[in-house]
Amino acid sequence: MRVVIERSNLLKSLNHVHRVVERRNTIPILSNVLLAGTGASLEMKATDLDLEVTEATAANVEQGGATTVPAHLLYDIVRKLSDGAEVMLKTDDEGQSMSVISGRSNFRLQCLPQSDFPELTAGAFSHIFRIDSAALKGLIEKTQFAISTEETRYYLNGIYLHAIESGGKLKLRSVATDGHRLARAEMEAPAGCEGMPGIIIPRKTVSELQKLVDNPDVAVTIELSDTKIRFTIGSVVLTSKLIDGTFPDYQRVIPTGNDKKLIIDRQSFAAAVDRVSTISSERGRAVKMSITEGLVTLAVNNPDSGSATEEVHAEYSSDPIEIGFNAKYLMDVTAQLSGSEARFMLADAGSPTLIHDTTDEHALYVLMPMRV
């Protein structure tokens, strides 16, 4: 193989694919990126056996061929080369090593044969639809913070994506929960997702996808099979296994009878919660909200270090209520809101609270209270 390629093109594509590769691998081939030069492009592929990313980029292929080299090492080399430089990738006759040549720099990397590189077979796709990358980004960003990191409840370690009838229209909805908080976002369902099964997209896939949907002008093609999902974003193709589990019936934890309405300035509230939680214990991080007409008093009491209170003006005209929340969860939710105000719908100190974005009716958040 002998390929000449612009350093910026090579770096951009390597940046997309190398992140999938785990730093520590017991299987040597999984530390490598597959490079294949054909026609007028260089295709790169990386996998961790659950997730696979491929991207093709324009290149001058003087001699076709394919090999695999350490992904993170190649990325670091290309990153440190001069901006605007051309890079030559050339394998030796035996295919044992590949030279990376740019200007006066010459690196030689050990290769592993292409035949050892695993293929993530996707099977037949039952559903195919297209979605704007900005819309997909919204579904991900509004919910991904609530994904559980508890490995024992593996079915919560991702975003639940499904089509659902709501208000007489078919909606594409994303949901994430860790048992303490729940985030839900939805959009009008694109053509092609009618009858699609509910799927759980793993946390690592969600994280990679979030970095790839950065161009609002690019449409994303989504393909679904029984066990896999594939996203095609421009020249990047991301294929991932789905979590094999049943997502809980999240509708049951979304309260419908909360009648105490609190409207508060989002930034002032988040900043006040951040300030008073400075004194809270790392383990508890509980903040008590005492809500009376026109006023919310935030209080934190830590027997080891002291106490803190702060008052925030708000719109509230129902009966006074005292309720406790995890300060980090409160700040996480308010960070997702795009409007200047947050609307809380409360019931009592022991019941889940609803939080709405005043400028986005398609997003909804549920927070479980803490005993304080």
Rank of each mutant, 00 (worst) to 15 (best):
H16E: 14
S166C: 13
R130M: 07
M196V: 06
R19V: 13
T359K: 13
L30Y: 06
F129Y: 05
M345L: 15
I355F: 10
A66T: 10
K328Y: 11
V17Q: 00
P197S: 13
S338L: 10
A46H: 02
P303N: 09
L89C: 07
L161I: 08
D357G: 07
T358E: 02
K12T: 10
N15Y: 09
D249W: 11
V69E: 01
T57P: 06
S105H: 06
K241Y: 09
I199N: 03
S305F: 09
F117H: 05
P28M: 12
F107N: 04
I199T: 08
G95P: 08
N157P: 00
M196I: 06
F344K: 03
E188I: 12
G168M: 07
P352I: 15
A363I: 08
T47C: 12
P118S: 12
Y316P: 04
L182Y: 02
I29N: 02
L109P: 04
S207M: 13
T297G: 04
T57Q: 05
D92I: 14
F129I: 06
S240L: 08
A327R: 01
D244P: 00
S174L: 09
V296E: 00
T54W: 03
A286C: 15
M196W: 03
Q251A: 14
V21D: 07
A40I: 04
G64W: 11
T232W: 05
I321K: 01
S307M: 12
Y155F: 15
V206W: 01
R266S: 05
T221P: 09
E55P: 03
E86P: 04
T57S: 14
L74D: 01
L112W: 06
L49E: 01
T292F: 06
L346H: 00
P28C: 15
G168N: 06
V78W: 02
L30C: 08
M44Y: 03
V69R: 08
A271D: 02
L346I: 04
G192Y: 00
N60R: 14
D93S: 14
G257M: 14
F325M: 09
T121S: 13
L172Y: 07
H180S: 10
E141C: 15
A314I: 01
L49F: 10
G284T: 09
I199Y: 01
L182R: 05
G84W: 10
D83I: 11
G39Y: 11
H72G: 07
F117N: 00
L49A: 13
A183D: 00
L30E: 02
E194M: 12
T358I: 15
L112C: 10
T54G: 06
T68V: 07
S8T: 08
H356K: 15
I279C: 08
N9C: 13
G103Y: 08
S290P: 02
R203I: 05
N302T: 06
P70E: 15
M368V: 09
T38L: 11
L224C: 12
S174Q: 05
V3A: 14
V4Q: 03
G294Q: 08
A71I: 12
D116K: 13
I264R: 02
G103C: 13
L139R: 00
D274K: 14
I323D: 03
G192M: 04
V237R: 07
L209R: 00
D92Y: 10
G84P: 03
G84N: 07
L42Q: 01
A176Y: 03
